[in-house]
Amino acid sequence: MGKESDHSFSSAFDCVEYKTVFDTLYEPLCRFCYRYVLSNEIAEDIVQDTFAYLWESWQRLSEMESLKAYLYTAVKNRSLKYLKKNFAKSPALTIEGYTDDIIDLDQPTAQELLEYRDLQAIVEQALKQLPERCRIIFVLKRFDGKTNKEIAQLLNISVKTVETQMTIAIKRLTSIVSKKWESGAVILLNVWISAQGQVIE
């Protein structure tokens, strides 16, 4: 391999090691990223960008002990950066105050019911219905395991706001999901019952 990556290969994917990393990690990284950004396009965009960067620094990075850990960290950092930017951009008008009026009260169609067969799909839909700022806070907490203080620092808001938004997020998720739930998916009922057992102990 030459000193500069573009001298040795006409395409990055001609490099076997690079191609292997891409083949094994592209999709998992996209899924990982999707949890943060909840959008196929943005997730792919972030991961592709990371892979492009990886090739530019291939010489340096390919010698790293754990390329996989590096890639996950890189994608995570980019996702957080994206959320932070998006948080600042999304209107503050929508965070407080509207707690109930955006909830989707429509009965799902038969088609939707099929799609909602699995609980995750329902929760995903519900997550997408949260106001942007509320969702970002929830995602950071749930998927990143950040403490309220860390979230507050990252997004430049008060811990109190984080707490309030988390309460709203859970309240609204619960409300949206149970509406879909009650519309008939039997599988979900089972999940619910087993969870009840788990809680009461």
Partner: peptide, 14 residues
């Protein structure tokens, strides 16, 4: 319970 199910369902999300 509902909140817990939602929270847990995201364990291996997507």
């Amino acid at each position: 319970n509902k909140a817990r199910v939602i929270w847990d369902s995201l364990e291996g999300a997507f």
